[in-house]
Design a protein around this nucleic acid. Structure first.
Length: 258
DNA sequence: ATGGTTGCAGCGCAA
């Protein structure tokens, strides 16, 4: 099973890129972030024509996540538990082939201490959700735009980003706390030393041209799924297309149960 | 150099 995560930064603007990429790469499950539209405005017909079940958790203007699958999906659930007052559309989960797949858009956390505090609270809820799935012994995948550069190796200019919410020690500590539940980060598990493995290049400052990137889109696997991990990689090519998102797709392949 | 770019929405805000 091939699972893809991609922050598309508006599905309305990105639809041609997404359709072309899906035709060429035929993922089984496609998790999108920042669709930036309400559910009724998501271009479901176009994706159904390519063979996908379409589930969305959208909102006006900001955020919004989608869960698309060529395989049957059951028990879709929207919203990360733990705060009924949180109205950001950042979480959608569903079961495919016995795996609970969670698509997430973690808060960026820049723009003031209130926003950073929200990010940390959201990460505490994420850890609680992962713990609950582990307790249930549910095989699961957490995938999406985590807005976290786990280490200095995941940042093009570490000193310049020292105070950025994507790199701040409290955010990295929260990330490690989640990993320390016993999860496997798919990309670094398979490519521990690959340099400049970026998944995001800012629109500003010609970041793509200079290869000034960050690695912030990730897959976290529960132990049973980690045992079945075959491959995980980043499709840089999509970032170089016309009208590209500032993020590029990241994918992983999970083998069938032996 | 407190800059620059994109998207939404309708102009400042979020990223």
């Amino acid at each position: 099973m091939k699972i893809v995560t991609w922050n598309v930064n508006s599905i309305k603007v990105r639809l041609p890129n997404v359709l072309e990429w899906v035709r060429a790469n035929t993922p089984d499950v496609l998790l999108l972030q920042e669709i930036k539209c309400v559910d009724a405005d998501f271009p479901a017909l176009e994706l159904r024509e390519l063979g996908y079940e379409v589930h969305t958790h959208g909102q006006k203007t900001y955020n919004g996540v989608a869960f698309l699958s060529r395989l049957p999906v059951s028990d879709i659930s929207r919203g990360l538990p733990g705060d009924d007052a949180d109205d950001h559309a950042r979480w959608i989960e569903g079961t495919v082939a016995g795996i609970r797949i969670c698509g997430l858009y973690l808060p960026n956390g820049n723009g003031g201490e209130e926003k950073f505090a929200y990010k940390l609270r959201w990460m505490a809820r994420l850890e609680a959700r992962a713990e609950a799935l582990l307790m249930d012994e549910t095989p699961f995948v957490l995938a999406g735009d985590f807005n976290i550069c786990p280490t200095a190796a995941d940042v093009w200019d570490p000193p310049a980003f020292a105070g950025d919410a994507l790199c701040r020690p409290e955010a990295r500590a929260a990330w490690r706390s989640i990993l320390n539940l016993g999860l496997t980060e798919a990309f670094r598990g398979l490519h521990p030393d690959r340099p400049k493995a970026w998944t995001f290049w800012d629109y500003q400052g010609a970041a793509w041209r200079f290869d000034h990137g960050l690695r912030i889109d990730h897959f976290l696997l529960s132990p049973a799924v980690a045992d079945r991990l075959i491959a995980c990689d980043i499709d840089r090519d999509a970032r170089g297309r016309e009208k590209a998102s500032d993020h590029t797709p990241v994918w992983c392949a999970i083998g069938d149960v032996a």
